[in-house]
């Protein structure tokens, strides 16, 4: 089987080879994400029983928690790609990092938003300086800085190297920031949105994990689609892109 050879995976790191592969994969991930969203939301909102304490308001957890997981995960993956791109000078890795940044920022923003919506019935206020919300706010700042730096530098190669270095710095800092915010929070006896108070029925677990996979697949589908246009933009002078454009852009 071709798929088990090292050469097969190595050639995938070439934008030219990856471009059509990404084009073929993206719709499948999008479809899978859509199906899982429907299942997950149905189970979460109609099958799972209400919580005895938080009643129905806890159900936003099914959206909030997967978003929050993914927002953090995307940042780490993005920095990982950036590091690979910086160390081994593979162009595709830095392109993947750029493709993930806007999605990560959006997930973080939605995570904050849903967190605030969950906070209103639980604490009576949309915003409370609890550890998780605060660290997500900082995560949003980090995403913004990453994208702003990449956009501010005109030369695309310099831009991707600079933002990759920032990503590396970020990945060293993420655990420190996370730890310090937790510390700060315990010192000030803050409250926390937590799932620990909710006894998780099996149907709740199913809804949560289904939606986690839905968000994951959605991220992959979007990142693949976006990386395709980044490939075209950055490689627009390459012969294969010119040929592609002449052939009608498929």
């Amino acid at each position: 089987m071709q798929i088990f050879t090292k050469a097969f995976w190595l050639q995938l790191s070439s934008p030219k080879v990856f471009y059509p592969v990404a084009g073929k994969l993206a719709p499948w991930f999008a479809i899978a994400a859509a199906i899982l969203f429907v299942i997950g939301l149905y189970v979460g909102f109609f099958v799972a029983p209400p919580d005895y304490q938080q009643k129905d308001s806890y159900r936003i957890m099914f959206i909030h928690v997967p978003l929050a997981w993914m927002a953090m995960f995307v940042y780490i993956v993005m920095c990982g790609y950036a590091a690979i791109g910086l160390i081994w000078k593979t162009r595709l890795s830095t392109m993947m990092a750029s493709a993930l940044a806007p999605t990560g920022a959006m997930l973080t923003f939605l995570g904050l938003w849903t967190g605030a919506l969950w906070g209103k019935p639980t604490w009576g206020a949309y915003w409370v300086w609890d550890a998780r919300l605060t660290s997500f706010l900082i995560l949003l700042f980090l995403y913004m800085g990453y994208m702003a730096l990449e956009n501010a530098i005109d030369d695309p190669q310099r831009a991707s190297r600079a933002s990759a270095l920032l990503g590396l710095v970020g990945i060293v800092n993420i655990p420190i920031i996370y730890f310090s915010v937790k510390w700060w929070n315990t010192l000030h006896q803050g409250m926390s949105v937590s799932t620990s108070g909710i006894s998780m029925e099996p149907s709740m677990k199913i809804a949560m994990f289904t939606l986690a996979f839905a968000v994951w697949f959605y991220t992959i589908a979007i990142a693949l689609t976006r990386v395709r246009s980044i490939i075209l933009e950055r490689e627009r002078h390459a012969a294969w892109v010119v040929d592609l454009a002449k052939a009608g852009g498929r």
């Binding site: 900082i138 700042f141 980090l142 913004m144 800085g145 702003a148 730096l149 501010a152 920032l166 710095v169 970020g170 800092n173 420190i176 920031i177 730890f179 310090s180 915010v181 510390w183 700060w184």
Partner: peptide
């Protein structure tokens, strides 16, 4: 831009 990049990284120092 410098402020945007650096201030979030200063947070742990501020906290402690």
């Amino acid at each position: 831009l410098l402020a945007l990049l650096v201030l979030p990284l200063y947070i742990p120092v501020l906290i402690f």
